[in-house]
């Protein structure tokens, strides 16, 4: 059985956000919830400043604190290392959100896609309302509803339960790459089997010095980051007093 992991090459990542947008489309993610997101930082003092962009998603930790804490095993590990969630068993206690050090688990505070349920049109009897739009195209919740998501998880998660990235387990099951990996125009996301010494993931991990988020907590994330983007150079110096 493979053990899946992802390498994110920060030198290749241009911060375009197509991973996040493709994820939303693939997984019918509602507004306010981010299965794929980012952490941005600014370092230095003006005018010498630099912007850092780190794409984030569920780390599918080997020692997942969310799984350990879930009272009903709604949050569980699959044999292939993916941390999966079963909304049928979720009681909505949000203990996984408290336990997750990465802030990647979200709670459905209300019914999903509220803006697409609105019945009012912009220009009455001229334009269609969002709800009519959804009906016309035969969508379910949204006009761009992806029925493939239903294979392993309710296509749209109900209110009162949590949700998070699943490494697109429904695609992986069919031998396809996660949608964010496929959609990345810079090939900054590399997905593969950590137990296969020849996998591209392992080749990259052996070539560069990887880091993972909050490694000191011992959660053993399966998302690795390599390199960093910087085109900057500087004249050789020893500084000064």
């Amino acid at each position: 059985m493979p053990r899946y992991a992802m390498v994110i090459d920060l030198q290749r990542c241009v911060g375009c956000g197509s991973c996040s947008i493709s994820c939303r489309n693939e997984n019918n993610v509602t507004e306010g919830i981010y299965w794929s997101h980012k952490i941005t930082e600014t370092s230095g003092k003006f005018p010498n400043v630099r912007y850092h962009y780190i794409p984030t998603l569920c780390n599918h930790c080997t020692n997942a604190p969310c799984v350990r804490g879930c009272p009903t095993e709604a949050m569980h590990k699959l044999e292939n290392g993916i941390t999966m969630h079963d909304p049928k068993k979720c009681i909505g206690c949000r203990y996984c959100m408290i336990n997750c050090p990465y802030g990647v688990i979200y709670f459905n505070w209300k019914d999903a896609h509220p803006s697409w349920r609105a019945g009012n049109s912009v220009i009455k009897e001229v334009t269609a309302s969002p709800a009519e739009e959804v009906r016309k195209v035969g969508g379910k919740g949204t006009p761009y509803y992806n029925p493939e998501r239903d294979a392993t998880l309710p296509g749209i998660r109900p209110k009162g339960v949590v949700e998070k990235c699943t490494f697109c387990d429904h695609r992986v099951k069919r031998g396809k790459l996660p949608r964010c990996v496929e959609a990345c125009p810079a090939d900054a996301r590399i997905f593969g089997d950590l137990d296969d010494p020849e996998s591209q993931v392992n080749q990259l991990l052996g070539k560069f010095r990887p880091f993972r988020l909050k490694e000191a907590l011992g959660t053993e994330p399966a998302v690795f980051y390599i390199r960093d983007f910087s085109s900057a150079g500087y004249p050789r110096t020893k500084g000064g007093i």
Binding site: C70, P71, T72, E73, A74, K88, K89, C90, I91, G92, C93, R94, F107, N108, K159, G160, V161, V162
Partner: peptide, 15 residues
């Protein structure tokens, strides 16, 4: 709780 009616899973699917 978000879904209190499902608390029986504490018995059916214990962790």
């Amino acid at each position: 709780l978000g879904s209190p009616l499902k608390v029986f899973y504490i018995i059916l699917s214990p962790n």
